[in-house]
Amino acid sequence: MMRAASDRTGRISRRRALGAGAALALVLAGATVAAVRTRGYAVPPGRRLVALTPWQFVVVRSAARRIAAPDREGDPSIPSADDTDVPGSIDLWVSRMHGRVRRDFGRFLAYLEHVAPVGAGFASRFTRLSPADQDAVLAALEQSPHDRLRAGFEGLKSLVFIGYYRDVRTWKLARYDGPLLARPLGGWR
């Protein structure tokens, strides 16, 4: 049974976390991807996926919410990753990837969902963790001693920001005034 992941007692020992390192290698080798549990993930009604599977979509959505999390909680002027449909954008970009890259990305998502939380000391899937714990997992990936894991994180981060900063509403926070072409009189709102 899964424990509440933010519960400190739910954290697993360093030894078990190291054991998870071995699982990491397996996942990266692609050997266990097929065995990864992919049931119980629901996409919003009406959402038609182009390239991602439902479980990948849900993982991407959770990660995007944290990677593009607002710096001012509750500020209605900041659009969320969901408002800007970052997961939909990622689905489209993945559809443009070559088969090899797409496979690697899928493996990374499987790792993020099932193995990275264990490596960071949580006994739960990434998508079921609290936002703070998800941040801890992402931070561990960002600082990982494994080059390919860091690269996987950077790839995911890039995809999230393509989806987020393509949206006119996000430009205001960066004080970017956008393309000159078709710029509305008085600037973007």
């Binding site: 990677i67 593009a68 607002p70 941040d135 992402l138 926070l173 004080r175």
Partner: peptide
Amino acid sequence: FGAAHMAGMRAY
């Protein structure tokens, strides 16, 4: 990433 990154983007 996250809040710290967005704060950085405000200085873009």
